[in-house]
Design a binder for these strands. Structure first.
Lengths: 208, 208
DNA sequence: TAAAAAAGTTGAAGTCATTCATATTTGCTG
DNA sequence: CAGCAAATATGAATGACTTCAACTTTTTTA
């Protein structure tokens, strides 16, 4: 265990990913060539392909790190959500959205999402899909938490609802990254319009 | 008007599109090269690019034809929907789904969707987005029709609801085409689980 | 420690989408 | 109809991702 070879491998993989994060952010995904990454990471082009299946694959690895962070931040909110069904749901969604552009450009999101759809069988394509599922699960968790607190009708199943809400926020996020001119504020307003009526319908107050 | 030049242009464009539909279906999008299309269409590679902006652009043109058909079929359903809120909504969704694989493979859908996300500014990227919007509008229309018939609560706004339902069915369709092993039947079951609870919530019977 | 085996690296070659300067075809005019 | 102009077609050249056969480095063996 822990021979020289293993250390070198880990180090090379890390260097490639670091190079990717840095240069993709600075110069944009498209304009950075594999050769550039190889140069920054001080390996050859061929070596890049020993660690990652494709250029887009590298991008997904960087996006995945970002989503992991979002999931962690979301877990805190789910543990103790704000009062009010729509407040709680929207605050989680906005947390996702606000985080999304901190380290990744719209172009990077577009590329990563496109790959996840286009090449779902690659390791990182799968990885992206799993991350989406975990995000959906987190929304479901929130619904369940609100049910436990008596704010959402317990007659409703949390999972379909969580899935519905996630699918909606995800699709709206796609529309957001597709349009370079759309602001986060516009996105928020749109998701409010879509989500709030549903929040009303499922809340216990509405039933009463 | 209608000179030789115009006729030839129209003819070439048609031949290229026909070649694309035929060969993409038969051999898969990826494995067909522009050169192959050019050969089948009896034009040169450069000419293909005089008519279409990119390879994916050609694909979207074929997908668009398909979606136009779906929209036409959907319009009939919206005009006279089945009784029952969930019946009506689900029958429209299933109409979309059942149509989807008639002429296009999952790979073709994946590629087209990926392009629409990745290159939203290209003419056909925009075109795909507009088609999505028209589908969403059709769902909204259905909700409005159900409201007019007194089956859906009129206190609710049709548009956010239609958007919500469409975003959900669209996202589920994406999951479907991402997984080569998933059957249409499984897709239907999943969308039922997601959509039916919502249908109950918005129906007038539920409110009463 | 020296040789053999295994693992990993390398960069030039291959492939394919896309571009662009040139050639061709069509339409128009006197 | 000859000659000119505009539109269009052409395919070799370009550029970037990806592959792969040859080369190095590390590990194991005796």
């Amino acid at each position: 265990m822990g021979g020289l070879r293993e250390k070198q491998k880990a180090d090379r993989e890390r260097r490639i990913l670091e190079a990717a994060v840095r240069r993709f952010r600075a110069e944009g995904y498209r304009s950075v060539r594999i050769e550039d990454l190889a140069e920054t990471a001080e390996v050859s082009v061929g070596t890049v392909y020993n660690y990652y299946q494709s250029k887009a694959d590298i991008l997904i690895a960087t996006v995945a790190m970002e989503v992991e962070e979002v999931l962690e931040a979301g877990a805190v909110t789910v543990k103790d959500p704000p009062r009010g069904v729509d407040e709680a749901i929207l605050s989680l969604i906005f947390q996702y959205y606000d985080h999304s552009l901190e380290y990744l450009s719209k172009e990077m999101w577009r590329t990563a999402m496109a790959l996840a759809i286009d090449k779902p069988q690659t390791p990182n394509g799968r990885r992206y899909t799993r991350l989406d599922q975990r995000l959906a699960a987190q929304v479901t968790e929130l619904i369940a938490a609100l049910q436990a607190r008596g704010e959402v009708q317990t007659a409703l199943e949390a999972e379909p609802l969580g899935g519905l809400i996630f699918n909606n926020l995800n699709q709206m996020f796609i529309e957001f990254v597709k349009d370079e001119t759309m602001t986060l504020d516009t996105l928020r307003k749109r998701v409010i319009a879509q989500t709030r009526p549903l929040a009303q319908l499922i809340s216990t107050e509405h039933a009463a």
